[in-house]
Structures are given as structure tokens and as C-alpha cells.
Nucleic acid binder design. Sequence first.
DNA 1: TTCATCCTTAAATCCAAATTCAGAAAAATT
DNA 2: AATTTTTCTGAATTTGGATTTAAGGATGAA
Lengths: 208, 208
Amino acid sequence: MAKSTGRESRQKSAKRADLLEAAQRAMAEHGTAVRLNQVAEHAGLTSGAILYHYPDLQDLLVDANRAGMERFYTDRLAALEGITDPAERLVVTITSGLPTGQDDEEVRLLCALGGAAARNTMYAVLLTALFDRQVAMYQTLLDTGAFQGVFNLAADSLTIARNLVALEDAYGYRIMASHPTLDHGVAAELILDYARLATNHPLPVENR
Amino acid sequence: MAKSTGRESRQKSAKRADLLEAAQRAMAEHGTAVRLNQVAEHAGLTSGAILYHYPDLQDLLVDANRAGMERFYTDRLAALEGITDPAERLVVTITSGLPTGQDDEEVRLLCALGGAAARNTMYAVLLTALFDRQVAMYQTLLDTGAFQGVFNLAADSLTIARNLVALEDAYGYRIMASHPTLDHGVAAELILDYARLATNHPLPVENR
DNA sequence: TTCATCCTTAAATCCAAATTCAGAAAAATT
DNA sequence: AATTTTTCTGAATTTGGATTTAAGGATGAA
């Protein structure tokens, strides 16, 4: 029996992370109707090994999606690290919410989930929670900027925040569907156009 | 052999419409991984009968989706029938683009498609075309209103039109996922809020 | 009546996926 | 090194439809 929570549990959580990541990639590739074998293949294991850790595939899939959303959200927060100017923060947040390209696995997973959410309550609940968290994130950002006098909001922050998240979501789908004239850059500019209207701030595109 | 294109072809196209509708409902319920049997069940037929008309299920599904999108689009145009005031037209268009509720089968089908589009080129192409048609619809509406001096556009009409369609799409997903505080009315008001900013028009909600 | 169309029934075929488990392999413990 | 525990494989087993096919019944038009 383990006496410490040291190496053993560290290995356990590492294995767990492996399985979650494999499940995420498998779902990104095959959708919510992903098979046990397909998860096993992505994990470099056999189906029996997956079952050893997760007797019920559905549990693994739900955990994988929760982890995927958590990562998506915390990555966005991390992108704001060290940036204090509200305008700059807004621009970075908008940029980090869009998929980098058609091959963005993180967003591909979210799209697959969104398609199933209308039929699957669990996925609907997860996505709703993610949406609300992102709205709260934007709302804080907008309120802070307004308080500092940087933004002059054209509507209440909840309305603007919801619309910003909604725009991100929708353009995420379009980018993943390889819209010929809507790539990451164009979509970001479209959202920024709304953000400028809503905040009465020129929101300069960061020059790097 | 048929000598006229009369009754016989009328029956053919009626049968075809039946199959397409059955496929639409089956896909709305089971997603893009819908089974032949499930389509047959919705059609009140056996799988053999479906195969008699459509030897390849994929062909039927693609046709069904094309028909579904066509209907969605033409329904929106029809809702504008007889309305001449640009502001009123804009309000009606926004309203007609959102699902009536979680049980809206038309939108449920589109959501299922959107989730698969990141993995299925055919569905991606269809949805991209629908998006662009809707953008064009809004663009015409906006340009007309601007020309008449009713709207004072805060950005080029393409930008506004894209953002309006994007907002509709995103809130459609949220409504279908039963977001507890985002129903048809709230979503419409959120989009209208953007539309007011973008057109510099108060856009009164129609009172009925 | 004849013919073509449409559809069902039922069997044949097929196969993919989940499940199970004995025991190998690896890792930890002593 | 020996023992124990954990992890995983390999292969058989089971399961459960799902597609496919074809013979023929039903229907309505000619």
C-alpha cells in the first residue's frame, strides 16, 4: 500500500493525463461517436488497457472533455499574463479565442461537442458552463477597463461580453470548416470591429 | 413509360420530399452518424424501401441537408414578404434566424451538421455556402437601408452582415443547448443591440 | 388483364465493437 | 533477488445489430 502520495500518485495522474489526451484527440478526429478502439489507438494501447483504467468509456469521454475545456480556458488566462492595459488585454483575449487554423485540435473538439450538445444533455451542460465562464472573463475585463476610463461601453458589460463570446464561437466553426475567405486574421478583425464599437476605443492591433 | 410529366412526376417528387424530410428528422435526432434503419423508421418504411430510391445512404443525407438549408433560407426570405421598412425587415430577419426553442428541428439539423463540418468536407462546403448566402441577404438589406438614409452604417456592410450571421449561429447553438438564461427572446435582444450600434437606428421591437 | 412501380419480408451476409480473462511484462516493494 | 502489485497484451468470445439481397406481394395505371 502506498504510504506517500509521491511517486505513485504522480505516475497515476500522468497516466490519467495520457488517457485524457488520447481521448481528446480521438474525439477531435471521430466526433462524439468515437469508439473504444480509436481511443486505444491514439493512446498507443489496446482496448483492454483503456478499460482497465476506465471501465466505462463514457466516463472517460466526459472527463476528457472537461479537461479539454479547462485547458482551453486556462490557456486564455495565461495568454493575458503580464498584460495590464485593458485594450491590449481585450485584443489578446479575442485573438486567443479563435482557432489558429483548420488543424486546431482543441477547437475541433469543442466543435464536435457543440454539434452533439443539442442531443446530449451532458455535453450541453459542459458547453454552457464554458460559455458562461468566458462571458464572465470578458465581463471582468470590460468592467475593469470602463472603471479605469479606458473603455466607454456602449451597452452593459454582460451584453457586450455575451456577444464577444458568441462571435468567437461562430467564427471558430467557420474557420474549422475552412471558409475560403474567413481565416483567423479576418475573423479577429471582424470581432475587433464590434469590440471597437462597443468600447469606444480604437483597439490598435498589436504590432510585433 | 410515362408520356406526361404530370401526375406521375408529381408523385415522384412528393415521394422524394417525403424521404428528404424523413432523413432530415432522423439526422436531427441521431446526428450525422444516422443509420439507414433510423431513416426508414422516420419515413414509415423499411430499409429496403429507402435503398430502392437511394442505393447510397450518403447521397440521401447530402440531398436532405441541401433541402433543409434551402428551406431554412427561403423561409427567412418569405418572412420578409410585404415588409418594406428596412428597420422592420432587419428585426424580422434577426428574429427568423434564431431557433424557436430547443425543439426546433430545422436548427437542430444545422447544429449536427456544424459539428461534423470540421471533419466532413461535404458538410463544410454546404454550411459555408449557407453562411455566405445569409451574409449576402443581410448585406443587401443593410445597403438598401443605408441608401434610403434609414441606416447610418458604422462599418462596411460586409462586416456587419458577417457579424450578424455569426451572432445568429452562435446563439442558435446556445439555445439548442438549453442555456438557462439565453432563450429566443434574450438572444434576439442581444443581436439587436449590436444591430442598433452598427446601423445607428433604434430598431424598435415589433409590438404584436 | 397486363405491366410497371413500389415496397415488404425474411434470410443471408457481414463485420465491427465490446467484453473477458489468463497470463506476460513491468514496476514497486521487501 | 525475491515477492507482490500494477499494468497491459493477446486472443477468444460474445454481442448485436446493420447492410444487403432477392423473391414476391400489393397497388394503380394502361
